[in-house]
């Protein structure tokens, strides 16, 4: 049973057809590398899945149940988490506070609901340990490396028990060593049975972790196949249009 299935998704912004008739299935624990040129519609597709945009037409299924998202919170409640291109993280807060942002643990003390910092730190430490990341819960995100910030963003998805994680160019602006860290994080998510959609322009990164490659060209899905059966040359051809479809 697919974790997520898109059926004939179309999304237009006025005269612009950002997505046309996109159908795609993603299995639990599968890493899908979503590729395409600038403006091909990758971010739009992620936003449709995450409930930021309602599709103009087409349907979404989670574990073969039809779903409709009116706002991001709907998608979040259904187990879909997004790690944003520009990381939705507060630099002025600690790693633990960021992991728990909006869903802080609290303790009842008399009439007060006070924040349970110790509880959040311990739980965050557990999550970082699960991700094999050296991020320390107390540290301010401001002072963290790009890879550690990714770990914070990804730990959030573990906390919410997400079944699908969408990542929009997580490796765009970080160093080579940090890219390796992020790819490892993705493998850990996969090992926990979480389906990952990874958007990236970096071909080697995608081939390193992806089980499946999906290519968008001008809003149309022109390929969706096992990474093992494809190659960087083929994907490049698909992106540019030198290869019509695969």
């Amino acid at each position: 049973m697919s974790a997520l299935r898109l059926a004939n998704i179309t999304k237009s912004f006025g005269a612009i057809h950002a997505l046309t008739d996109v159908s795609l299935a993603i299995e639990p624990g599968e890493v899908v590398g979503l590729m395409g040129d600038n403006g091909a519609g990758k971010s739009t597709l992620v936003k449709v899945i995450a409930g930021n945009f309602a599709p103009t037409s087409g349907e979404l299924f989670l574990s073969e149940r039809r779903v409709e998202f009116h706002k991001p919170l709907d998608a979040q409640r259904a187990g879909i988490e997004v790690v944003y291109q520009d990381l939705a993280i507060c630099n002025n807060l600690s790693a633990a506070s960021n992991v728990f942002l909006g869903r802080e643990l609290t303790r009842q003390i008399g009439p007060f609901q006070i924040i349970d910092y110790a509880g959040m730190r311990n739980r965050a430490a557990e999550l970082f340990a699960r991700l094999k990341s050296e991020t320390r819960p107390r540290d301010l995100v401001k002072r963290m490396s790009g890879g550690q910030r990714q770990a914070v963003a990804i730990a959030r998805t573990l906390l919410s028990d997400a079944s699908i994680v969408l990542m929009d160019e997580p490796t765009a602006a970080i160093s080579v060593r940090q890219v390796a860290e992020v790819l490892n994080l993705i493998r850990h998510l996969r090992d926990h049975g979480i389906a990952v959609v990874l958007i990236s322009h970096r071909m080697p990164d995608v081939f390193e972790v992806a089980d499946k490659i999906a290519v968008l060209r001008r809003g149309r899905l022109v390929a969706s196949k096992k990474a093992a059966d494809s190659s960087a040359e083929e994907v490049t051809g698909l992106i540019t249009g030198a290869i019509e479809m695969a």
Partner: peptide
């Protein structure tokens, strides 16, 4: 400021309003 969600959320919003919004605050 320190011990309530109200306080935490104020600082989160001041730090990155977009992030605060995305997390459902």
């Amino acid at each position: 400021f320190k011990w309530t969600r109200w306080g935490q959320h104020i600082f989160a919003m001041g730090g990155n309003e977009q992030a605060a919004k995305l997390t459902g605050i």
